[in-house]
Amino acid sequence: MNGAHDLGGMHGLGAVGAEPESSEPVFHHEWERRAFALTLACGFLGQWNIDESRHARERQHPVDYLRNSYYENWMAGLSTLLVEKGFVTREEIQAGRSLHDDTRRLDPVVASRVDALLRRGGPVDMPPERAPRFAPGDRVRVANNHPLAHTRAPRYTRGRLGRIESHRGCHVFADANALGERRGEHLYSVRFEAAELWGSAAVARDAVYADLWEPHLVAVA
């Protein structure tokens, strides 16, 4: 979807304004610690995948997405998923306490399992069902698609000409995964010359690389 999250190339947002590395804390407020941990703890319940999680944040109104701080967007996405999956209601989130006994129940992720879960992670490589369509050096164009659902092809790449840098293997296709369909597609690193993306004002020798799946790409003769 063409949401506020798809930020590449947006103007007017100002300076990066980085805090010095030596003095920046991992979390700036206690509630950020809690928001982070709640998101992981609920994610490990296994009721949604990482792409559904991203999409839940992206589906906010663009004004909200841009106004919110980072972990506020995490909270918004988490609340949406918890409600949609039937674990809590909006009224309960407002109230901060249980109002209904008929919401879905699940055993929590207990502390003793956390290390193993984090170490295992969630690899997304899959056995391919067919040979890759593209090879390094091939010219490709990013399909000019504007799906209403989740996509990992950023707007600034769409319709643009690139070159296959490398084949990454067959990975779970995020766009389908966000809709609950776990299927593999060949993934490629694609190089875009800066001028192709940003026009003649860009420094000609610079380039942007994005990782895109086969359904995002169109062959160019």
Binding site: L45, R105, P108, V109, V110, A111
Partner: peptide, 13 residues
């Protein structure tokens, strides 16, 4: 509020 709710419902340790 969300943390309290999730702990009360037993979804989070």
């Amino acid at each position: 509020a969300l943390e309290s709710l999730l702990i009360e419902k037993g979804l989070v340790d």
